[in-house]
């Protein structure tokens, strides 16, 4: 094979080079526009990684068996014999807010009819897991709840109860 044909195989024509350059430029520009648009529209609010703490009240103010709802924080505080549980009121099915039915002693979700027992376990309905728990601490005889990161659980376990 002589030199000329090998050169012919390796080089590209001027026309082809310019076409490739145009296509490459177009891909870069359009890609920038698409990525830039998404970056522009991406929410500035960062997901709450820090602590969201609120004080639910004094330990001695809760009666055994009582369930108190904190509307703004979407939290239920339940007083048991041994201590406290802090439930997230957000239904683990599709994020509706459940209510406490004092007559039937159940948590009920208005959206898809889910029912939870007083320990947050699913009695009926579609939720895949029990109500999530929030971190609860007793500081200076007061209940301090951190709603930043709900604890996902498979089922109720007496060890989840915070003594107090």
């Amino acid at each position: 094979m002589d030199l000329k044909t090998t050169n012919m195989n390796k080089t590209i024509s001027r026309r082809r080079l310019i076409v490739c350059a145009w296509i490459g430029a177009a891909v870069v520009v359009i890609g920038e526009l698409i990525v830039g648009s998404f970056a522009f529209l991406w929410p500035r609010k960062t997901q709450g990684k820090g602590e969201k703490i609120f004080v639910a009240g004094k330990v001695r103010d809760f009666k055994v068996g009582e369930v108190i709802y904190f509307r703004k924080e979407k939290t239920f505080i339940k007083k048991l014999e041994g201590g406290f549980l802090a439930f997230s009121a957000v239904c683990p099915h599709l994020n509706c807010v459940v209510t406490w039915n004092e007559m039937l002693k159940k948590f009920e979700c208005p959206c898809h009819g889910a029912k939870f027992d007083p320990n947050g376990e699913v009695i009926e309905g579609p939720p895949p897991r029990p109500l999530d728990l929030y971190k609860l601490q007793i500081v200076d005889e007061k209940l301090v709840v951190d709603t930043a990161s709900p604890m996902v659980r498979k089922n109720f376990d007496p060890s989840q109860i915070v003594k107090g």
Binding site: L41, W42, P43, K45, Q47, G48
Partner: peptide, 13 residues
């Protein structure tokens, strides 16, 4: 979900 809502919950965004 975060992108659609512009936040963690349904709100102004």
């Amino acid at each position: 979900r975060f992108f659609m809502l512009g936040a963690d919950e349904v709100g102004h965004e």
